[in-house]
Design a binder for these strands. Sequence first.
DNA 1: GACTTACGGTACCTCCGGGTCCCGTAAGAT
DNA 2: ATCTTACGGGACCCGGAGGTACCGTAAGTC
Lengths: 203, 203
Amino acid sequence: MTTEDSETPPPTGRPRDPVLEQAILNATVEVVARSGFAAAKLEDIAKRAGTGKAAIYRRWPSKTALVVAAAENLQSPVAIPDTGSLREDLLGCVRHYITPSARAALALATVLAEASRNTELRDAAQAAIGQPPVEALRAVLARWIARGAVDPATPVDLIAGLVPAVAFHRVALLHQGLDEATAVALVDDVLLPALHAPAGDTP
Amino acid sequence: MTTEDSETPPPTGRPRDPVLEQAILNATVEVVARSGFAAAKLEDIAKRAGTGKAAIYRRWPSKTALVVAAAENLQSPVAIPDTGSLREDLLGCVRHYITPSARAALALATVLAEASRNTELRDAAQAAIGQPPVEALRAVLARWIARGAVDPATPVDLIAGLVPAVAFHRVALLHQGLDEATAVALVDDVLLPALHAPAGDTP
DNA sequence: GACTTACGGTACCTCCGGGTCCCGTAAGAT
DNA sequence: ATCTTACGGGACCCGGAGGTACCGTAAGTC
């Protein structure tokens, strides 16, 4: 290996359009989120991306691979709020599920849940859109526990899992995204009471 | 109308087997819950029910109608616990989601969520397996509010919606049913703190 | 016993969608 | 200018599954 023999054969000819790449991924998310994994047609995705099926198969070997890529592409840097107020930090985390992209992600998750047997697909979706916001909430809780404002005995996993559960449930079954009022109620009436609990009511 | 003219033409010939009817519905739930709505094959359902496709189409006109009927058939009388203890009542409601039939129902719901465009299907599922347990929880909360043990200002809908959300989320995305430990934690660490809150912490 | 309808099973029709191929054209590299 | 590869788009192949038709048989009614 002098410089680069086997890898990267000199890229001659017309290069691939990166804009098209992104357009295809976006179209995939939209179509899959709206129609479901099985019902999503490659032709619809191609049409919505303003291209043909060939351009898709030039990049990904199968429908599954395409959807996995689209799910991974949804990853957005989830901020870990640190406002100095526990309530505001929680609100920041919960509000993450209100954004349009989050709603698209959840709708996609709805669908990916259907592909139960497809482990690859499910894991990719979970890692891409499931974990990050939960990790953020977990981090916030850990920080406030360290600060002594939250009981160290609180079941962090259970509490942190509450928010995505509600968001997912609303989108998947009730077909309505999380709204501001619900987010506030979730924080004030559920999360904060659960966290403020000292050492337990039965000593 | 003397006795019954138009309706019920004298049922001659071999009658339909009601046992088979139930077997088909059960098989439908199992196969659809395992494979998903789209991936569920009528032939698999028939085979699992120990019959042929013809026997199915003799009863329901389409795959969708069959699944709707199967969802409706899942309705089971959800008991409204009244043990004298708020905690026990809540536990009773939450435990409902641990039963095998509840897990099957939730798995089915996972799938029905995918059929977003099919309003008929979604509504049937919601009415059959979504509403009843939530109504039970709502009733329990209402009773304890009436008894004065729970703040009348508590957002009953939000709280009652928490449990199915968690159950659904776990089954659909995490692929694990609700277990006893989680149920207890849900009641002790989430529901009870949210309910015991008096009039609010900021007077 | 005659009749009617359900039964299990299978072969079949038909449509739909994933995936492939090929066209004429466009956009870069040498 | 030439070469190579990507592009949009259409034609096509093919497997799979919903739905139908028909068999011989079983289980009821009159």
